[in-house]
Computed example of a mutant assay.
Amino acid sequence: MVAALCTEALGKDRVIGVLMPNGVQSDIDYAKLLVSHLDIKHYIINIRDAVDGVLSQMTKSGIEISEQTRINLPPRIRMSTLYAISQSNNGRVANNCNLSEDWVGYATRYGDGAGDFSPLSNLTVSEVKEIGRSLNLPSEIVDKVPIDGLSDQSDEEKLGFTYDVLDKYIRTGEIEDKTTKERIDYLHDLNKFKLELMPSFEYK
């Protein structure tokens, strides 16, 4: 969606898409469909060697690798890759997160949570989909089940609630299930730090 907005605002000649599968990734076809539909320049950079290289060196160093490390390393390598390509093209990195994801911390800090500007940061998933329809994006892209590409589960399966429920709660404060409300509030409070700048210290 961000690529489509940037293309609409800046023109397709000023937008570059970067596709970064981690080995073989089933959902990469949606990204290929999008850059083809927008007719924008794009690169495909497979990050598998970089991910495996870091994990291999950690193992050789005797570091016990946690499951969360394995999950968060690919998006952080992707962001490093984006900045390398951006710098080589005198560009800026667009953040792809939206309000719904940010509300419950569903982004990797210094991974997909990074960027130079964030066109969707004040828009819920439902609102982003409406924009996609107004821009005449293919329905298979707009209505695809959101997945992070890091596991076999969808976003909503991992979160434990739907984006429709979350979006309504964000915009109206209304929610029917008390347990779901408590989980959303818990995730919101737990992950606020992801949206804050690194704390600074004053020395006297």
Rank of each mutant, 00 (worst) to 15 (best):
V104M: 04
R133N: 11
D152R: 08
D116H: 10
V125D: 02
S80Q: 02
N98L: 00
R48A: 07
C97N: 08
N90V: 10
R109D: 09
S118I: 07
E140C: 12
K144R: 15
E67F: 00
S80E: 06
F161L: 02
L150C: 08
Y163I: 07
L99Q: 09
A114Y: 05
D27C: 12
G91H: 04
S134I: 14
S139N: 13
N98C: 05
L38G: 07
P74R: 01
F117P: 08
V35S: 06
A84D: 10
E67W: 07
G113H: 03
R78T: 00
M58G: 01
S121A: 14
W103F: 13
L34M: 12
C97W: 05
I131K: 09
G115M: 03
D29F: 12
I141P: 06
D148E: 12
E130H: 13
I85D: 01
N136H: 15
I141H: 07
D143S: 12
Q68D: 09
V125H: 08
S134T: 13
D49R: 08
E157I: 10
S118E: 14
E64L: 09
I77D: 05
I71E: 02
P119W: 04
H42G: 03
G113W: 01
I63V: 11
T59P: 05
D52G: 02
Y110E: 09
V128D: 05
G149K: 06
N96E: 15
K60W: 07
W103K: 12
E140H: 14
Q153M: 13
T162S: 14
N72V: 00
V51R: 07
T108H: 02
H42Q: 02
L137M: 12
S86Y: 06
A94N: 07
E140T: 15
G113Y: 02
R76N: 04
S126F: 09
S36K: 15
N72L: 00
I141K: 05
G149Y: 07
Y30K: 12
D143Y: 14
L82T: 00
N90P: 09
I28W: 08
E127G: 11
G149D: 00
L82K: 06
H42S: 04
S139E: 12
F117I: 10
I40Q: 03
I141V: 15
I28E: 10
E127P: 11
A50L: 00
R133Y: 11
R78G: 03
G115Y: 02
Y43C: 07
A84F: 10
A50K: 03
G62I: 05
Q25I: 04
S134M: 14
L55I: 03
D52M: 04
V142T: 10
E156K: 06
K60L: 09
D155G: 09
V145N: 12
S126D: 10
N46A: 00
Y30M: 11
T124A: 04
Q57W: 08
L34R: 01
D148K: 09
D148S: 13
W103A: 12
D102H: 11
D52N: 06
G53P: 06
I47K: 01
S80W: 01
D155F: 05
R92G: 12
T69H: 04
S126R: 10
I71S: 05
T81H: 06
I77Y: 00
F117Y: 11
L82D: 01
L55P: 04
L34T: 07
